[in-house]
Design a protein around this nucleic acid. Sequence first.
DNA 1: TCTGGGGTCCTTTTGCCC
DNA 2: TCTGGGGCAAAAGGACCC
Length: 423
Amino acid sequence: MSRGGVPPIGPPTGPPGEDRGCTVLHVDMDAFYAGVSLLERPELRGRPVIIGGGGTRGVVLSATYEARAFGVHSAMPMMRARRMCPQAVVLAPDHDAYARVSAGVMAVFRSITPLVEPISLDEAFLDVRGAARRLGGPAQVGEWIRATIEDEQGVTCSVGVASTKFVAKLASARCKPDGLLVVPAADVVSFLHPLPVGALWGVGGKTEEVLSRLGLHTVGDLAHTPVSTLVRALGPAAGAHLAALAWGRDERPVVPVEPDKSIGAENTFSTDIDDPAIIARELLRLAERTAARLRASGQVGRTVSIKVRFADFTTITRAKTLPEATDVGRLVYDTAMGLYDALNLQRARIRLVGVRVEGILDADMSPHQLQLGEREHGWRHAEQAVDRAARRFGAGAVRPATLVDPTGPGGSSGVRRTPRRAQ
DNA sequence: TCTGGGGTCCTTTTGCCC
DNA sequence: TCTGGGGCAAAAGGACCC
C-alpha cells in the first residue's frame, strides 16, 4: 500500500472509509539527517552518503538508502560503516539545518491540529480526530502532509494511519520510504501477529532474548501467552504492557509536548583518559553547558548526577540531591566533582563522563529563600552575565580560565590545570 | 567489531522514619 | 530497649528509544 510518485491529493489508498476510526497519524521522516544534508549537496543525490561524527569513535547518525543497501544503518560504529561501504561520502552532521527543517515540518503538523506530539526532530504523532471535517479522512490528511512537506522542505516522509499510536508507528515503518499505510481497526490483529516480537515498542535486544528463551518469536506467540508468564519473565510493568500491545490495545493518548524531566551533557573522549585533571576539566565543561541550558529554558533542577564509563564499557552513575534546586553551573560542577572524588578512582581508564540535572521545575516555581551572605548568589549573577555575553558575541566568548585552550590565542601563562572549586 | 548523545521509564536496593 | 515491617524517597543500575 506504500506509494511513491506524484502527490496530488487523490482518494485515499484502499477502499473508501477503511480509515474510519483511525484517528492517529505517525509521521516519520525518511533518513531525515541524510535527507536534509543532501539539500545542501544535491550533487550527492543517488549516491551512498553517511552522516556521522568525524572522530574515530563516532557512530552513524543517518545514512541514505543507497548506503543502507550496503548494510549501513544508524548507530553503527563509523569504522564498521566505512569498511562496509568505502565508496560512501561521509558528512559531518549539521544540527542547525536539522532543527530548522524540523521546525518547518512541525509547523505543517500544527496547521492541521494542535494535538501534535513530537517524538524527536524527525517524528511525531498527530491526533486528527478534529481535522476530518475540514480536510477529509485521516488518510487524506496523511497524503496532504506528505505532499506539503516534500513541497516545502524538499524531504520525504512516511505516514502510518491507525486507531492507536503504537499501530500507527508500526505502519509508518512498514511503508518506508515515501509511503502511507492505513491499518483499519478490524485488521489490527492480523497485521500485528506475524511481526517479530522485536517490532514491539519496548522490546530491544535483551527482552527479545528473554522472550526467545521462552520460545516466543512473533507478536502472535506473545499474544497467546498467559500474562502471568510474561510478568514473571519481564516484571509487572513490561509484562502487562506487552500483553496489551500484542492485541493492539494501546490507550495512550497523543499528548502535546511534555516538559523535560532532566537535562544533561556527556562526552566520550577520543581516547581513554586516566588523568584526573582532564576529567575534572571535562566535568566543569559539561556542568557549565548543562546549567546554561537550564538557564536558557528558565528551569532549575534539584538532583545532580554523574555518569562514568570505563574503558571496558561498564558504566556507573552517582547522584546527589541538593537542598534546593539550582541552575548555577558552579554548584552543579562542585556537586559533580564531589560525586566523582567519592568514587576514589586510582587512575582508572575512563572513556566517557557525563553530568545531568534531574528533578527539573520552572525557575519561578522553585522556592528560593535568599539567605544572608549567600554564596551561590554571586555565581548566579556572574553566569547570567556570561549568558548575555554569549548571546551577543557567540557561545564560548566567556568561559572559565581552565577551559581556555592554553595553546590557542589567549596565551598559556596563568592557566590553572585543575579547575578550582568554589570556596 | 566495537559500541554517540540526548533522553525516558522501570526495578531493585538502601536508608530513614515511625 | 529491641525488633519487625510499612511507607517513602533517594540512589543505582539497566533497558530502551531516536
